[in-house]
Amino acid sequence: TTLFRSIFFRSMSKALVAVKRVIDYTVKVRVKPDKLGVVKDNVKHSCNPFDEIAVEQAVRLKEKKVLGEVVAVSIGGPKTQEILRNAALAMGADRAIHVKLPADDTEIEPLAVAKILKALADKEKPEFIFMGKQAIDDDSCAAPQMLAALLNWPQGTFLCDMKVEGKKVMVSRETDTGVQKLEVNVPCVLSCDLRLNEPRYAKLPEIMKAKKKPLETIDVKSLGIDVTPRLQTVEVSEPPTRQAGVKVATVEDLVSKLKTEAKVL
């Protein structure tokens, strides 16, 4: 019966993977003239890079038959569907859920994100929720931990390695001084850091196949969750620009300036 249970558990295991549509990392962001945000119109967007790592991790576990199903989730305006199709589903997620916000530039905070994802988790009952460690737009680094807390689940944050062992996950996480190892019960929320894996590039056949995969749209209003921001943005500004310094002629000059002028060597 143990064998049966373990096969049963494995084949039934489900992961939710949350992905976010963000301004592409190669774009130089510019502050809007009203100084209340950054320019998003006609700017290249893509899947948050850390979320691609999360998708990759879940898909690999499915390929190893540790997981039975990978469900991608994203919260955002209409264009969020492109991310779900071209990133998550093309990379190997089985189906997707789009929690639709009114517009592509509607912003919601980690607290609201966590509440929405909790509502989906209550319905989908996954064993694992994979997320990127942070989104490269608001840089909050908060939603995975908040979701774990709302679900009263353990969290494995800043993951650089993991191994599923029955109803537990052996987690290696990046700390400020090295790597911490934890044993985390399933179900859990796992937030993925850079070293965990290198996400695959979805090839054309996968992108074509992804177009046919199921994608369910849920209007955020139907969830009855208040997504009004708690924080008010007073001002968004450009960081102080760094001035170019001097050009030095030789390696000797460089070393000497760093030693005697800048005093950093």
Binding site: M146, E235, V236, E238
Partner: peptide
């Protein structure tokens, strides 16, 4: 709603934090 990675405290409810890896500096009020 937490306020992460504060680099400056303006007053008891107003905080400055970097976004977009420091390419946009955001002042928020809670």
């Amino acid at each position: 709603q937490p306020i992460p990675d504060v680099i400056k405290i303006v007053d008891e409810s107003t905080f400055v934090r970097p976004t977009y890896a420091g390419n946009a500096i955001s002042t928020v009020k809670s």
